[in-house]
Simulated assay, not measured.
Amino acid sequence: MARLVKDNDPLKFGDGHSDIWKDTLIETYWGQPMTFVVSAQGDTQEFTTIEQARHWLRRKWPIVNKERDRALAQVDAAMQCLTTISMARRAFLSAAQTAGFKLVGHDPRSAGSL
């Protein structure tokens, strides 16, 4: 789960090295990247982290429907370790398909990696 380390963060080092973590955002790798064609002009977007998927679902998603809401709920749950990354990825893929995004370069035999 990503989090921004603040000046008063209890996880900072007490040995004067706390500045190395100041304003550091850590993103969580969520498996093999997924690349989608996201526009009629052929623009593509690669999703490499769960935080990136969440940002798109919340801020850049072209439609609001039950698949998007379900994917957002699954992604949030996975970020809190309440479900698996695999479940979140499958929900994200389903939402992307209903939004009209086309998955690029996916081998159907590796469906388990989604």
Rank of each mutant, 00 (worst) to 15 (best):
R58W: 02
S18P: 00
E67D: 13
K60P: 00
A78R: 10
A111M: 08
E51D: 14
T28H: 02
V5R: 14
G100C: 09
T48R: 15
A73L: 13
Q74K: 15
E46I: 01
A96F: 04
L11F: 14
T28N: 01
G31S: 06
F36Y: 15
P62K: 12
D7W: 10
Q97R: 14
S39I: 04
D76S: 12
G42D: 10
A77N: 09
G105H: 03
D76P: 04
Q97E: 14
I85C: 03
H106P: 00
T48M: 05
I20M: 12
S18G: 15
K22Y: 09
A71R: 06
V5C: 07
F92N: 02
R68D: 01
M79N: 11
G14M: 09
V38I: 15
S39M: 04
V38C: 02
S110Y: 07
D9E: 08
L114F: 05
M1G: 10
V5N: 06
T48A: 13
H55E: 12
H106A: 09
A99E: 01
A78H: 10
E46W: 00
D19Q: 11
A78N: 11
R54P: 01
T49R: 08
M34S: 04
Q97H: 11
H17R: 13
C81K: 13
T84P: 07
A40S: 11
C81D: 15
T98C: 02
W30M: 10
W30K: 00
R89D: 00
I20K: 11
I20D: 08
F101W: 15
T35V: 06
S18R: 06
A77I: 07
E67Q: 14
G14T: 14
V64N: 07
E46M: 12
K102G: 01
G100L: 10
T48Q: 09
P108L: 12
V104W: 02
L114Q: 03
E67K: 11
F47G: 03
P62G: 03
G105M: 03
A111G: 12
M79V: 02
G100W: 09
L114V: 15
Q52N: 04
T24M: 14
F13T: 11
D15Y: 07
L25Q: 11
K12N: 14
K6V: 09
L93R: 06
Q80G: 11
V104Q: 10
M87W: 01
I85R: 01
D23P: 01
Q80S: 14
K6L: 15
P62D: 03
T28F: 01
F92H: 03
H17W: 04
E46Q: 12
L11M: 08
R70P: 00
D7M: 08
I50T: 13
W30E: 00
W56D: 10
P10M: 05
S110H: 08
A40C: 00
A71F: 06
R54T: 00
A40R: 09
Q45S: 06
M79Y: 03
S110K: 13
R68L: 02
